[in-house]
Design a protein around this nucleic acid. Structure first.
Lengths: 226, 226
DNA sequence: CAGTGTGAACCTTTTCACAGCA
DNA sequence: TGCTGTGAAAAGGTTCACACTG
């Protein structure tokens, strides 16, 4: 291990390792080698070792890593030893689904409040929580100690609701709306586009189809490509 | 522009550019510079130019890019000029939300079939489609010409339903279940973990909190870090 | 002796900087 | 003059390979 700077790429993989480790712990596995963890996480073992070495030297040569201890260390590094109250804005289809999603709570993210701009939805109960009006944001953030805001509104409302979140003191925002929004420099923002990976799959699918038609019917026969 | 190999990093950004371009086209913008596109997409302009140069030389020096023409080129490259019938497996909260998600259809991905393993759900109509039984997969894939399968089942069922999709001839799979699944080499697979970005935000949030406590109450005062 | 931890080599991606064109 | 297209430099990330250790 070295200094305090963990590469971004590693941070992005820690949640994956954590999921595997927790699963293994539940199955009673006490110890795991980098190779085993790698194949369960879908990466290679050198990467696992390098990633984990940024957290410290928590492995045992000739044996592997203690699963329970490593879970603790990864959680600590990611900041998952504390609870993070989350607010969801925009209770449409997706907001609904996320409010009910078990995976959040399981990882320490408690959905603590829901807001929407439509008076029709305000008052409705979703996932055991009342939908409140977006005008209440500052009060809700203070009341629940909201740390992270999740934007599930239509694209047209995304920037406005983001601005309101920032004004209410939220400094980490996860944006599911398909609109690019901007935030002040001290606010963390991540954009998730549900159709992005579908588009990437389409690219590779098209590519496969192109290769095949060359190989079979199309032009001259060619060596099939990896 | 050079040969036929577009870097993966670029492929991942093309959908973002496309979204911006379509939005601009709708607002009547005819021409856009790399700088304008960059700031709307949240990247820098050199990256935009390099990315677009892989598609060909479609810009005009001193002017910028023709929005409509560029949209066409990006769509062509991503394979979005054709339609891709999509099947969703696992009609829980998330499956429901995705079945109703407008963003898919808008980008050429028609949700053409829904399957579930629970007899309770089979027959139910969701988003105007009947939920069918997962046993019907081969018939459905043939009938609808399914190109892409989306896994929204609980983690425990993910590998099985994936195997069934592969057996039925699907060769592109998008996995929303929080389980790592494996597929044969000729099948494309992408994993989306909805709580991953939340965990990454937690990491940075924790970091900000740590820096602050050092700056104010904690130890010696320190220069605040970017 | 199996498996970690890590420098060093390698590859990919980003950024710079500027020549060249509309 | 303003903005593209692109080599070349820099940064970042991955993989190799092996010394070292429980």
């Amino acid at each position: 291990m070295k200094d305090r700077a963990i590469p971004e790429a590693t941070i992005g993989r820690l949640p994956v390792y954590l999921r595997v480790l927790v699963e293994m712990a539940e199955e009673g596995v006490a110890t795991m080698s980098s190779g085993a963890l790698a194949s369960a996480a879908g990466v290679n073992s050198a990467k696992v070792r390098k990633d984990l070495s940024y957290l410290g030297s928590y492995g045992t040569r000739g044996v592997g890593y203690d699963v329970a201890y490593l879970i603790h260390q990864v959680r600590r590094e990611l900041g998952l030893t504390q609870h993070w109250p989350v607010l969801i804005a925009g209770i449409g289809n997706l907001g609904h689904a996320l409010a009910n999603y078990r995976g959040f709570a399981r990882r320490g993210f408690q959905v603590a409040a829901l807001v929407d701009a439509s008076p029709d939805r305000v008052g409705e109960a979703v996932a055991g929580l009342p939908v409140e009006h977006v005008d209440e944001l500052p009060a809700i953030v203070a009341r629940e100690g909201i740390a992270i805001g999740v934007v599930c509104t239509p694209a047209s409302a995304a920037q406005e609701v983001t601005d309101r979140m920032v004004a209410a003191g939220i400094r980490s925002i996860l944006n599911f709306s398909s609109a690019v929004v901007s935030v002040p420099e001290d606010v963390s923002l991540r954009e998730v586009d549900l159709s992005l990976d579908l588009q990437i799959l389409a690219y590779y699918e098209q590519r496969k189809a192109a290769l095949e038609s060359v190989g079979s019917g199309g032009g001259r026969a060619l060596t099939p490509v990896p």
